[in-house]
């Protein structure tokens, strides 16, 4: 039985992900294509919302990944703090821009959806506001990584920021809920979703979500490889300077 921590060795990680990445390309793009084409062209229009409802196949998975990406960064940061595997810290760094783009997609598709539905591009609804705050957290996290020269220092500081930020993000969510009750529909895609969304919409949405998860994995793996190589390059250059 091999330990999962073997993949914390950068070489082992790169070797393994090299083999996984091609398959992930096919799998993620295929799943995404199936989910989105199914959702866009082979589901009926909503009786109230018309065809605008179909942006939901982008909006909901992106929003889901926006939060899950932060959660992944939190786990990776904890692993770095506790076990000090460099790959973990670099994976957190690699995931941040992907998560930020997912947040941006969720915000933009939400605005495009909200315009015909609510008659406004933006409302200070608790969900929208929370995602905007999440976007700011991503910005700060990425900016801190970029600002610090020493890689280990940056990994330590951003990990603590991610931990503290997570607590404050949850706090902000409650605060924002308290502050404005809002007009966003409830979570229509939770596990008891059958009650809210009919099967015809539910299945393609599930496929699209799987596609987004796979796409996220793929992007994070590729970006982590890049970060590892960049880190190795900096370390080799630093060593060269010292000789």
């Amino acid at each position: 039985m091999t330990s999962i921590w073997e993949y914390a060795n950068p070489k082992k990680f790169i070797d393994t992900s090299d083999r996984v990445i091609p398959a992930l390309w096919v799998l993620s793009l295929g799943t995404l294509a199936i989910g989105l084409i199914w959702g866009f062209f082979f589901t009926p229009d909503d009786y109230r919302q018309g065809s605008t409802v179909k942006i939901f196949y982008l909006h909901v998975p992106a929003a889901l990944m926006a939060i899950n990406a932060w959660f992944m960064m939190l786990v990776a940061s904890l692993i770095w703090i506790i076990r000090r595997h460099h790959v973990s810290a670099l994976a957190a760094r690699a995931a941040a821009p992907v998560g930020m783009v997912m947040t941006l997609i969720a915000l933009l598709t939400g605005a495009i959806w909200g315009q015909p539905m609510w008659g406004t591009w933006w409302a200070w609804d608790p969900r929208l506001t929370s995602f905007l705050i999440l976007f700011l957290f991503y910005l700060g996290y990425i900016a801190l990584w970029a600002a610090i020269e020493n890689d280990d220092t940056a990994a330590d500081l951003t990990s603590v920021l991610c931990l503290v930020g997570s607590v404050f993000a949850v706090l902000s969510r409650y605060a924002v809920n308290f502050w404005n009750q809002g007009l966003h529909q409830g979570a229509s895609m939770s596990l008891d979703a059958e009650e809210n969304v009919a099967d015809v919409f539910w299945w393609p949405a599930l496929v699209a979500m799987a596609g987004f998860v796979l796409l996220f994995l793929l992007l994070v793996l590729i970006r982590t490889q890049t970060e590892i190589r960049a880190r190795r390059m900096r370390a080799l250059l630093a060593r060269e300077r010292m000789q």
Partner: peptide, 8 residues
């Protein structure tokens, strides 16, 4: 970094 933490 600090302003988002000030939200709550």
């Amino acid at each position: 970094l600090v302003l988002p933490l000030y939200v709550p």
